[in-house]
Each structure stands twice: as C-alpha cells, then as structure tokens.
Design a protein around this nucleic acid. Sequence first.
DNA 1: CTGTTAGCGCATTCAG
DNA 2: CTGAATGCGCTAACAG
Lengths: 337, 337
Amino acid sequence: MSDVARSAGVSLMTVSRVINNKGDVSPETRERVRQVIEDLEYRPSGIARSLATQQTKTIGLVVPDVSNPYFSGIAHGVAEIAYAEGLSVLLCDSEENPEREFRLYQVLEEKRVDGVISCASRLAAEDLQQALSWHSEVVLVNRMLEAGNRNDKGLHLASAGYVISDDFEGARLAVNYLLRRGHTCIGYLAGPPQSYGGRRRLIGYQETILAAGLPLNPKIIYHCPPTVEGGHAQAVELLQCQPDITALFCFNDMTAIGVLRACADLGRRVPEDLAIVGYDDIPMATWVAPALTTCNVPFHEMGRLATQMLIERLQGCDEDCHENIVQPRLVVRASAP
Amino acid sequence: MSDVARSAGVSLMTVSRVINNKGDVSPETRERVRQVIEDLEYRPSGIARSLATQQTKTIGLVVPDVSNPYFSGIAHGVAEIAYAEGLSVLLCDSEENPEREFRLYQVLEEKRVDGVISCASRLAAEDLQQALSWHSEVVLVNRMLEAGNRNDKGLHLASAGYVISDDFEGARLAVNYLLRRGHTCIGYLAGPPQSYGGRRRLIGYQETILAAGLPLNPKIIYHCPPTVEGGHAQAVELLQCQPDITALFCFNDMTAIGVLRACADLGRRVPEDLAIVGYDDIPMATWVAPALTTCNVPFHEMGRLATQMLIERLQGCDEDCHENIVQPRLVVRASAP
DNA sequence: CTGTTAGCGCATTCAG
DNA sequence: CTGAATGCGCTAACAG
C-alpha cells in the first residue's frame, strides 16, 4: 500500500479512501490512485483490514458431511448468497463427529468469523450452547435451541436464529395423501431414533392417522439407519412380518430407495402392491424407477434463507430475523400416484 | 492477550510462547499461564497472528458447484485432510460461472490464503494462468496446465501441481470389458464437446476400438449435456437411429441413468438388449435398477491427495509433489454383467 | 528462561 | 479535500 501511495504521490490515507470509496477525494486524485493500483496489481490485505476493522467479512459454515446431498445443497445456497453479499465462507466438515464439531466452533472463533451457520448439529444441547456462546451471531439450520437460556456461569446466551423445515406438516402431507388414495394400513419406516426430524415426522404421522379415525399400530413402525442399505434391510423385515401394509411412508428418499429394492427382491410391485412415499426430494428421487413420490424440502433455499437471516442479524436487525419455518411440498410421482 | 499476561504476571512474549509451545518456558510458568488462559477463556486472534506471521493456515477451494456429487466428494476429502493438518478451508463456489470464478481467485488473494485447490476450472487457459499467478501454491484437480509457461509480462509462472484421473485408461477399461463380453458395436454417449474428460475418454474409446481391429463409426458417437435428461434425450435418438448398437459407454453415471430411462421408454431390456457402462461411480450408481456397471473415480481420495500435495508444496517439497494420476477402476454391476 | 523493541498492513481518529 | 499519528493483537529478533 505504501508503494501505491509513493507512486501516486499521496499519503496512505488517500489510498485507503480510494479503495473503500470513502471520504472526499478529488476525482483526479482518485483516478490517479486507481491507475497506480491497477499498474502495480496491488491487492489490499484482507487480514490487515480485518485486524483494523474487527470484522472479517467471513462466515463459518458447519455441516456434518459436505458430501451428503442435503448439506451440499445447503452449502450451495449459503455460498450463493454469501458471494452476492461479498462474504467468504469457511467450510467446516465435522465428519459426523461431535468432538470435532465442538472443536470447529473454536477454530471459527480464532478465525474471528463474523457469524456462523450451523447445520443439523450433532452436539448435545449443552455443548452446542457453549460452542455457540463463543459467537455473537449464529443461525441454526434444522436444529433448534431454546432462546434465552443461561449457561452455568449465569450468562445470558445470545439467542440463535434458526431455519427449519416443518416436519410435522411434511408428514401430515404425505400421510393424508396416502389416506385420500384409500390406504388404511400405512407403515412408517422411521429412520434413526435419535433423529430430530424423524421424531417430528413420527408425531405428524401419528396425529394424521388418529385424525382419520384409524388405530395406531406400533407394529408397522420400524426404525432403520438413514441409508439405502438400512431401508432395504428393515423393509424386507417389515413387509414380511406385516403383509397387510399397502403403503409405506419413509424417513427419507434413501431409505425409500432401499424399500424399492426390497420390493424388487420380494416380488412386490410398486405402486400396485405397495405405495411408497419418501422425504426430502433429493435429485435421485426422480431418477429411480418408479420415480419417488416424496416431500420436497428446499435445502438450497434453506441455505439461502439461513445466510440472509445471518446477514440481517449481523446488521443488527431485531425482528423478523429470528425464525424461518420452511414448508415442505408433496411431489407426486410414480411410486405413489 | 495482555489481560492474560497481566493476570499471570508475565510478559506478552511468554504468553505467546506458551500458546505456540515454543521457546523455553519453565514448566511452572507454562502451567500458570495455561491456567489463566483457561480461566479467562482467552482465544488467540488468528487474524493478528496471520498478519504477524504472514500465513493464514487457510487454503482456498474453488469448485464449479458444491452441490454436484463430484465436487462435494472432493470437498469432503479436502476438508478431511485440512482438518487433520490444522488448516481451514475457504469454500468458493463459482456456480459454473467463469467470471465469478476469476473473481474468486482475487478474493482468495485478498484473504491471503496459503494456497489454493482449483477443481475442474471452467476458465480458459490464459485466464486460469493469470488467476493462479496471484497465488504461490496451487493444485489443480481434473484440469491441467502446461508447467513453466510465461505470461504476457514475461514472468515465469509457478507451475501448479495437479491430480487428475486417468481418463484414457478408464475408457480403455470400460470398452475392453465390453469387447471381451462379445460386443462389437459399442456406442459412446460423449457428454459435452468442451469437456476435457469427455475428450480424453473419447480418445481412449477410439484407441481401444481400433486396437481390437474394429472399424470406427462416428455415427454411434453422440454428444449430450452431462445430465440425466441430456442422456435420456440423446439416447432415445441414438438407439432409434442406430439399432445395431448392443452396448453403450456413457460420459458419466447421470447420462447412463438417462439411458436407462430411455431403454425403459423404448422397451429395450438392460442388459439383455443393451449393455450400459457409466463413469464416475457416484453413490447413486448402485441404487438404480439395474445397478450400473461403471468406472470408479475416487473423488474423495482425489480431494485428499490434492490437499496432501498442496501441503507438501507449502512445505517446500520439490519432487514427487507435482503430479498425481489416479487410476480408475471398473466396477461390474447388473447393467453390463 | 524471560522481557523489550519493532513491525505485519490497514483504518480510524484528529489536524491541517 | 488531504495527511500524520495511533492502535488492531500478535510474533520475531534481539537483549538481559
């Protein structure tokens, strides 16, 4: 920068003003400085600037696994808005490991990020709260935390904003659809018992069944790992033990694809013998045969919304930037027409 | 930090030494300082440190689209090694937009990243070269650039390292396999004409066909967008115009899945009427029916290797850290048994 | 073993 | 409209 100042015959201050388009600088001076910057290929140091301004123009993004389509979709949305707003994104992949995740919030604090977006945190409420307390602005995605809690030191934690998809409604949408299609024995392949989303969808499922005046049958609810293999294995079991089931609501599209394979193995036709509804609407849902009827969760959009919310909070907004509940949408395809 | 020094009754320097485990500090002093750091929940400022040391412990990762499984796989590998080595990753998503990509290398320079990993750059050689000249250490993934070029200012550009998958060999593997299975009329759905990988695979395809003493028939080579839809549309065309084809080698798994759907539409059985071989081996390849025979490209591993290479180069290695050609592996599944 | 003196490259006062 | 002084929080090179 001093090189630029010398070459242009001005002070450091003037160069700084030109770079930041601030203060009053005469047009000629401004142009001359610009020219020198161009010629010297001068690029201001973001770190020096950050040290002086106390802001890094960088946000942290914590995900359990970027290679998972849900999170890469979110990451894509985050990167999109961040770029448009001139922010950089520090990508933190916890590899589904809570200790590593915890450590990552520390790293982000050392990097002095302006804010963080935490996706589907695998941390216990207590730990998450502590980790978030290092940061002034946080937006949670698909994870909630009671606002205004106090930690063990009696400090009032900054309440985190959150964007979350309405899992109750998603389950209602799916089950109601199946009911309307005449199904009366609808199973639920519920995913991992620890899953927040899975539990919320279970409630939605149960409420809807009851609201229709049907009995709740715990025997047609199976848990399974949230993978194709997990869905496949449990579906084989479920379909053989409970032959009355004519429709199956699944934790997510991957398990639903597993069910598809189980049906192929067992010689059950889809949708004639078994109607299948997935969840999430990942790209793959359209590519399997039959294509999956599923609940669309707008991950990309959620990433965008989370970033916008974070930016608003960074700018000191104090209303309408606390929560954002995204509505899923039923997408009817061949697996449950 | 001065708070810590005061509380511990030592100088800033001693605190610094304790933090960095450097220099000789008496065990008692060290322990006392550690304790104070703990109590005060002091966290050193990465930016101040970066300004002083001239290194940010951060690398830039540029991808055309994180939500694309290839790149999210690579990103995952990068994040994994980076974390293990104490590096942070600045995620840059160019959204397949060359101008934006170009701009991102500038941003990374302003952030003063220690090095950058550039995946499948969409930039013209000239522009990429210029962008990379801003950075001292670069590793290219699935993109090459002649080493030792000179730019228009006569400067010698630091040669970038690269990790790339052997597309020639991958195509040979696939085509040879089909030949051995008795196919003599093997089509190639070649993807976008601009694709580097597609062009290399085309050469591998042609060489292998010729080596087998078979004629080259340009009519059974079709280009298409690298998507399910693209593969679907072109496959319908190709299969109808060239009914003799008994096997089809595809640009990637997505186009192969499109072909699968085209066969379903046209009533052609897979693999009985048409054997299909994909490329990449994305997770989805195992989930479609029939599962795809394909060439496995270890994206996750490539991300890891690229990061390791970058780190070695950062440490001043000058041999064995220039190129890494990864070998694809044929995975036989139901679509071409 | 420990402290002192200087910057790192910029932005923010306040004076001209 | 422009410049000089001061500090952001830390490390590196020297001195004790």
